[in-house]
């Protein structure tokens, strides 16, 4: 009786190891598959951007002739550089302004208690349920009166991106919530004003969330099509990359602009991916933290 028991244990031990090895192999296969699927489009876009023989879509992936023709055409024949500049300016301005807005809103809601705080939060929650871009109908009218469309569209867009950004306070509020309240109280007891607590105690501790907010602000204009198309659709001078490049893949332009789109896509991706990979750690912290706190 005892003997059989031992063998079973022995067997399961062996079996467990074997099954673990098997399951690990399966997982590796799945992960490699996932990696291939996820990276395929990006390999595709990079490869196609170097294709010289044709500007159309082709049934094979690797170009028959490599060259920089698409990139040269991009800068010589189109307004791409202008769009790129616009988007970069918007990215930097939005990163700064949006951070100021979001941080002050979330700090107040997280750490200060005042009359109407709960009401304000509910109000913004309800406000957020309204489809946001409908506000653009009026904003566009007003902006065109003020001259903030056409060539000045980037300025208008910066205002649109930043003005209401206080409503996106959730992630950073979640972060501030995790900083112990006793820190504030200790500083207050020592005679610090609330401004000093904010500036000298909490802000130095908030580097991750500040970087996260800056990163989000910087990335927003690069990917935004919806708002940018609304404000900047008239003149090529005021467009961001998304709006400008959108037309290249329309039925009429597809065959002449397809490879150029790929080239432009590669160039657009470079700054964003570089910044992102450097600050990846903070992004991950923001995503995980924000989700947990709701």
């Amino acid at each position: 009786m005892k003997k059989t028991n031992d063998t079973t244990i022995h067997k399961t031990g062996l079996g467990a190891r074997a099954s673990r090895r098997l399951s690990n192999t399966v997982i590796y296969i799945i992960l490699i598959l996932i990696t291939c699927i996820w990276l395929f489009p990006f390999f595709g876009i990079v490869l196609e951007s170097f294709r010289v023989e044709t500007t159309q879509q082709v049934p094979y992936l690797f170009p028959k002739e490599f060259g920089l023709d698409n990139y040269i055409r991009l800068f010589k024949e189109t307004d791409f550089l202008k769009w790129f500049g616009n988007t970069a300016v918007m990215g930097i301005a939005t990163a700064v302004l949006q951070t100021v807005f979001i941080l002050s809103m979330s700090y107040v809601l997280s750490r200060l208690r005042f009359k109407g705080r709960k009401g304000l939060m509910n109000f913004m929650l309800i406000l957020g349920m309204f489809p946001g871009f409908l506000t653009l109908i009026l904003i566009y009218k007003v902006f065109s009166e003020l001259g903030l469309t056409n060539e000045m569209a980037p300025v208008g867009l910066i205002i649109v991106y930043c003005a209401s950004s206080g409503m996106g306070y959730y992630v950073s509020k979640g972060f501030f919530d995790t900083i112990p309240k006793s820190l504030d109280e200790a500083a207050r007891v020592d005679g610090a004003t609330r401004w000093q607590v904010f500036y000298k105690v909490i802000m130095p501790l908030s580097k991750p969330i500040i970087i996260y907010t800056v990163l989000m602000g910087f990335m927003a204009p690069w990917g935004d099509f919806m708002m940018a198309n609304y404000i900047a659709h008239q003149t090529s001078d005021g467009m961001n990359v998304a709006v400008g490049m959108f037309e290249w893949l329309s039925r009429t332009n597809l065959n002449t602009h397809y490879t150029m789109f790929c080239a432009a896509g590669v160039i657009v991706a470079i700054p964003v991916v570089t910044v992102f990979l450097f600050l990846q750690k903070y992004y991950v912290e923001g995503v995980t933290g924000g989700a947990v706190k709701g």
Partner: peptide, 20 residues
């Protein structure tokens, strides 16, 4: 990192390319 990379690339580039 491979998966996170895909977040970094502006959505309109990857989406429009995939659509095509």
């Amino acid at each position: 990192t491979v998966l996170v990379m895909t977040i970094a690339i502006p959505q309109f580039v990857s989406l429009m390319y995939v659509s095509k």
